[in-house]
């Protein structure tokens, strides 16, 4: 059943979201983001199996490739930022980065 795969994806996404919101370690936050993206990827793949009247093609798969590329780029840039920040502030705690506090 496709809906089970979707439920699984939703669960991954929600757990990832919890990680993003509830953790203060930037590295773990970035990892949780990857988890959320994984959930999204599963949705793409699962939904590409739903018949929709025209001839079916795995377009969802192509999109997953794109997401993977974006994720790789994001992790590269994000980790670079983490390194730069750690270099200047000696911390990976996201709450120490409150430079926009009102």
């Amino acid at each position: 059943m496709i809906s089970y795969y979707l439920l699984f994806a939703a669960a991954l996404f929600s757990i990832g979201a919890y990680g993003v919101l509830a953790r203060r370690n930037v590295l773990i936050i970035l990892m949780s983001l990857e988890l959320m993206l994984n959930g999204v990827n599963i949705v793409f793949v699962a939904l590409s199996l739903v018949p929709h009247g025209v001839q079916m093609a795995p377009g969802g798969h192509v999109f997953v490739l794109m997401v993977m590329a974006v994720a790789a780029a994001e992790v590269a840039v994000g980790l670079a930022i983490v390194i730069a920040l750690f270099r200047t502030r000696q911390t990976v705690d996201i709450n120490d980065l409150q430079m926009m506090s009102g």
């Binding site: 993003v20 203060r24 409150q98």
Partner: peptide, 9 residues
């Protein structure tokens, strides 16, 4: 508006 990333997200 505390500026905390967690709060914003």
């Amino acid at each position: 508006q505390v500026g905390a990333v967690s709060a914003a997200t």
